Computed example of a mutant assay.
Amino acid sequence: MNINSIPVDLKNIINPEQPDFIVKCRRNYPRKKAFSLLFFSLFWNVFVSIFVIAFIVPLVSGQEVHFTTNDVPTTGSLDNWEPVLVPALIIGLFVAVGIGMFLWALVLLFQKGGFFAGTETRLIKYRNGKITVKDWEQFSGNIQVKNKQIYGDLEMELRTGKMKSRNKGSDKFVPDIVYLSGVKNVFDIEKKCRLRIRENDPTPKITLENNID
Rank of each mutant, 00 (worst) to 15 (best):
E190Q: 07
Q18C: 12
D9A: 13
A117Y: 10
L42I: 13
G92W: 01
D71R: 02
Q138V: 02
A34R: 01
W104V: 15
G113M: 15
L180T: 09
N128E: 10
E137V: 01
V60C: 07
G129S: 06
V60G: 04
F21Q: 05
M163S: 11
W81D: 03
W136F: 09
T75V: 15
I22E: 07
F43V: 00
G169C: 04
V60Q: 08
G161T: 05
N210T: 09
P58H: 13
T160Y: 03
L89A: 09
E17V: 04
Q149G: 12
C193F: 12
D153G: 07
I177N: 08
Q63C: 06
F39I: 11
I150T: 12
E157F: 07
L108K: 03
F55T: 09
R196P: 01
A117H: 06
I206D: 02
L158V: 02
Q63Y: 14
K191T: 05
F187H: 12
D213K: 06
A34M: 04
V174H: 11
K33C: 11
V178I: 14
I3K: 05
N45C: 15
R127P: 10
R198C: 00
T75M: 13
R26K: 14
T160G: 02
V86W: 15
V133S: 06
K184Q: 13
F67Q: 09
E64K: 07
S41K: 01
L42Y: 01
P202V: 08
G161C: 07
F102S: 15
E64T: 11
I99R: 01
V72K: 15
I150R: 13
Q144A: 09
P83E: 00
V107Y: 05
F47C: 11
K11W: 05
F21Y: 08
T68G: 05
I131Q: 00
A88C: 14
G76S: 08
A117W: 08
K184D: 09
N12D: 14
L123Y: 03
F94Y: 07
